[in-house]
Structure formats: C-alpha cells, structure tokens
C-alpha cells in the first residue's frame, strides 16, 4: 500500500506535465470543431464508481467569514439564504457535495449542480457527467453510474454548485481535481476532499427564464450568452432593464491587469440585467 502511495505521488507531476503538454499535438487535434470520440468510443467500458471517500466538503461558515474579512459586499439576505440551505444538511459546519440536492424544493432559486469531469492527459478532451437534480445512486449510495472505466491513471475534476439565491442569483461553486488510479473495484485518490477556496467561488448570474445580462453597444443590446436561458423562444424581444448595477462577485470588482501593470482605475464593465419581453 505504501509503495502504491509513493507511486501515485510520484505520478502527480508527470500527469501535470502531461496534462499541460500532451494536448499540444497539433496535427491530431488543433481544431475548433468537436472532433472528440463519443463517450462510448473513448471509454468502451463503463462502471459505477463509489465515491464515499471522495466527499468534497466545504466549510461555509469559514468561507463566509473569510469573505467578510476581505471586505465582501454580498447582501445579507443572500448570505442568509445560502446559510439556511447549507444548514439543512451540514455536518460539523461542512457541506458534502452529494447532499446538495436534498430538500431543495422549499427554495425558489435555481437548483444545484454536481459535475464530474473525467480526463486522461491526451488531446481528446474530457468526458463530463453532470447531475442537475436528485439522483438516488449518487446521493444515497454515493455512486457515479456509468462512469468511464478507469484502467489507468485519470484526472477527475469533481465540482459542485449550490442553488442560486432567489434575490440576487448568487451561488457558491467549488471544485477539486484529483488524480485517480484504480483497477477492479479499488480506486485510489491522491488527496483529501476538503476544499478551502476563497471568495471567487461566489458567482452571480441571472435567474434564467426571460432574464439575461447584456450591454448596450452602439445602440444594440449585446446579450451575455451564458446568461441566456435555453427555454427562450426564438424571436424578437423588447428588453426592459431590471437592474443596471447587479451584484457581482468580489473578484470582478478588482482593478484590471493591462499592459504589464495593475490599473486600479480600470474595472470590469459589468452588464445590466434585462427582462426580455415579447413585443
């Protein structure tokens, strides 16, 4: 076991180098098209991965304290909503990612997400398994069903996102990358699951539905595509401004590095939130 542990530790830098380099094989994959094989082709064998010892814990209380320490400007009502949500299932102040889905019905915000990205250091790209709603196998049996079968060392990025608050669409997300190696039913993971990320993990967006973020440029409204709901029907809309100074992550309120210097007079141009109304 000790030898295996040493071997895995020794593999980490190699994987890091490989993940930074192996995709540079220009001939085979320098393309903007998705030329990746599908999941079945790339990982012909699938299995269920037990993840009870990979729990991605997060200490929300410490996190919020750190945010306040760094001068956080997040509204108290949103913090309270996240705290209430967290308290539903926290154990000793920590949040376990696969319990995120439990009892979220009483909240009006957008639901949580748990994602697993499996990748090997090659140019074929990762494979994602995303859960957007309660999954019995995941939440109760701590098992990822139909995961790629790991026959050699993989990089697995576990990430989770809380629900969005109903007021300002704030959510916390956190992730951790692991080196996973396993044969048969035994999987070895190279580090503990507790994460300690600072305030960037506070993220904001829009409620979804017919709300989106956008900027007026030369008389036109440029929408921010990752705030636009897929449920919107194609057609013409009349935008009505809901909030022209929405709450954004503290990280986005820093000065901007440009031309070799940090310019504190320069800020990210935050978009406004609009409601798209049918004409």
């Amino acid at each position: 076991m000790k030898a295996l542990s040493i071997l895995l530790r020794s593999m980490c830098p190699v994987l890091a180098i490989a993940s930074a380099f192996l995709f540079l094989t220009a001939g085979s994959c320098s393309s903007s098209n998705d030329n990746r094989p599908n999941l079945t082709d790339k990982y012909p064998n699938k299995w269920d991965i037990p993840i009870d010892y990979v729990s991605l814990r997060y200490d929300l209380g410490t996190f919020i304290n750190n945010c306040m320490l760094y001068g956080s400007t997040y509204p108290a009502a949103d913090i309270q909503e996240l705290t209430t949500y967290n308290n539903l299932f926290s154990t000793a102040g920590t949040l376990n990612f696969y319990t995120l889905f439990v009892n979220t019905d009483r909240f009006t915000g957008v639901g949580p997400t748990v994602k697993f990205i499996f990748s090997v250091p090659d140019c074929k790209g990762p494979v994602s398994i995303t859960y957007n709603s309660f999954d019995d196998k995941l939440c109760n049996e701590n098992t990822i069903v139909n995961a790629p079968k790991i026959t050699k060392t993989h990089i697995v990025d576990f990430s989770a996102r809380t629900l969005k608050t109903s007021q300002n669409n704030i959510y916390i997300k956190w992730n951790k990358e692991y080196t996973v190696s396993g044969v048969g039913s035994y999987i070895t993971i190279d580090r503990q699951g507790t994460v300690d990320y600072p305030s960037y993990m506070f993220t904001t967006g829009t409620k979804g539905g017919n709300q989106a973020a956008g900027r007026i440029v030369d008389g036109h409204l440029e929408l921010v595509e990752n705030t636009l709901s897929r449920d919107l029907v194609i057609g013409d809309y009349h935008p009505v401004i809901i909030n022209d100074t929405p709450v954004v992550s503290d990280v986005l309120q820093q000065g901007v590095n440009m031309s070799g210097a940090l310019n504190n007079d320069l800020n990210w141009d935050r978009p406004m939130i609009v409601e798209l109304q049918t004409r």
């Binding site: 956008g214 007026i216 008389g219 036109h220 409204l221 929408l223 595509e225 990752n226 636009l228 897929r230 919107l232 029907v233 194609i234 057609g235 013409d236 809309y237 009349h238 935008p239 009505v240 401004i241 022209d244 406004m272 609009v274 798209l276 004409r279």
Partner: peptide, 16 residues
C-alpha cells in the same frame, strides 16, 4: 441606459 427603441433578436446563435 435607454432600451425603449431596442429590439433584440434571439436566434439559434444567441445561446451558449
């Protein structure tokens, strides 16, 4: 910002 006169077209290229 004024949006009264603005019409935004949502098409297949608008989404993420």
């Amino acid at each position: 910002p004024q949006t009264e006169d603005i019409v935004v077209n949502i098409n297949n290229n608008s989404f993420l």
